[in-house]
């Protein structure tokens, strides 16, 4: 398709959430997936080479324009907000959910040794964590997992991109103590 790259660039620009290849396929009816992927890769490359204020990033199963890191303070000024932060409690809870999902509230509390109701609710409201189902045990407790927004917020293509845990190696060593 002629002008494919131009069209895709506009579409990604105007989209408020990462635009997936599937969605693009749906929009650009007859264009083969291979061409779409090539156009996206080409665009990402162009932005990277230009090294300007905007980059095309592949996150959360789609493509999204993001600003350069060094502009952050000025963007915050423009938007008149404070930077997004998560408290240590929220970050720890989020880490347990991210690595252990699907996970029960009880499991998180066992790891952290504190009640996590409020923290978990905050993460649900921020749409970083969601309810993924209920465990099939008495009481049907709620299982939690991370959202697409979580991948978007932490700049991840998928969950496999999370940093590796300082491995279970040490946990195993502890078990040999028992």
């Amino acid at each position: 398709m002629k002008d494919l790259k131009i069209i895709i660039e506009s579409l990604v620009y105007i989209s408020e959430t990462p635009l997936s290849v599937n969605k693009l396929k749906e929009l650009l009816v007859d264009v083969p997936e291979k061409d779409i992927r090539e156009a996206l890769a080409g665009l990402a490359d162009e932005y990277a080479r230009r090294d300007g204020g905007i980059f095309l990033a592949e996150v959360a199963g789609g493509y999204q324009f993001r600003t350069a890191e060094l502009s952050a303070p000025w963007i915050l000024k423009l938007r008149g907000g404070k930077p997004a932060t998560l408290s240590q409690a929220a970050m720890e809870t989020l880490a347990v959910v991210a690595y252990r999902q699907p996970v029960l509230k009880l499991d998180i509390e066992q790891v952290r040794g504190v009640d996590v109701s409020a923290t978990l609710r905050g993460l649900l409201e921020k749409n970083l964590v969601r309810i993924v189902g209920r465990k099939d045990v008495p009481g049907k407790p709620i299982l939690y997992g991370t959202t697409k927004k979580f991948l978007e917020a932490f700049n991840l293509r998928d969950l496999s991109e999370l940093p590796t845990l300082r491995e279970i190696k040490e946990l195993e060593e502890a078990e040999s103590l028992e």
């Binding site: 408020e16 999204q64 324009f65 993001r66 600003t67 350069a68 890191e69 952050a72 963007i75 938007r79 907000g81 930077p83 997004a84 932060t85 998560l86 970050m91 989020l94 880490a95 991210a98 978007e152 917020a153 932490f154 700049n155 999370l162 940093p163």
Partner: peptide, 13 residues
């Protein structure tokens, strides 16, 4: 995770 680039802190959309 805290050190990772974070939306609405390090980059924006």
């Amino acid at each position: 995770m805290e050190r990772m680039k974070l939306l609405d802190r390090d980059f924006f959309t």
